[in-house]
């Protein structure tokens, strides 16, 4: 059975993905990702959800030629959009169940 990984270390996140350390530090400052464990860089671990948002943020930074403030804003809005879409889907489904026998 394949090994499933739920957390990724700071080094492991940066090195093979060619993500600069200072980029991750910026993104942590903006609250886009938060290490789930560890008090210093060498023992930081991130969950996969943070990793996904981090990678998205790095892609936006590199490919849209925008600064970190703008990236943070986009990510925040994307997160809100995803949460609202999920909530909307759930409410629609509840409404449907409530109105139809």
């Amino acid at each position: 059975m394949s090994e499933t990984i739920l957390y990724i270390s700071f080094e492991e996140l940066c090195e093979p993905e060619a993500i600069k350390h200072e980029w991750v530090l910026e993104l942590i400052d903006y609250g886009i990702a938060t290490p789930v464990t560890g008090s210093s860089e060498k023992d930081w671990y991130f969950d996969m959800s943070s990793v996904v948002w981090l990678k998205k943020a790095v892609r936006l930074y590199c490919e849209l030629e925008i600064d970190w403030v703008a990236v943070a804003l986009i990510i925040e809005l994307l997160k809100q959009k995803q949460a609202l879409a999920q909530e909307n889907q759930s409410l629609q489904s509840q409404l449907k169940r409530f109105h139809h026998a």
Partner: peptide, 29 residues
């Protein structure tokens, strides 16, 4: 692949399977 889905996963969670993506180039992982 046979994979383990941990207890308590939520919608939009991600699980990483290390090294199961596209093949590396040269000596790359």
């Amino acid at each position: 692949l046979k994979v383990k889905i941990p207890m308590g996963v939520s919608d939009n969670d991600r699980i990483r399977l290390k090294g199961q993506g596209g093949p590396g180039h040269g000596d790359g992982p």
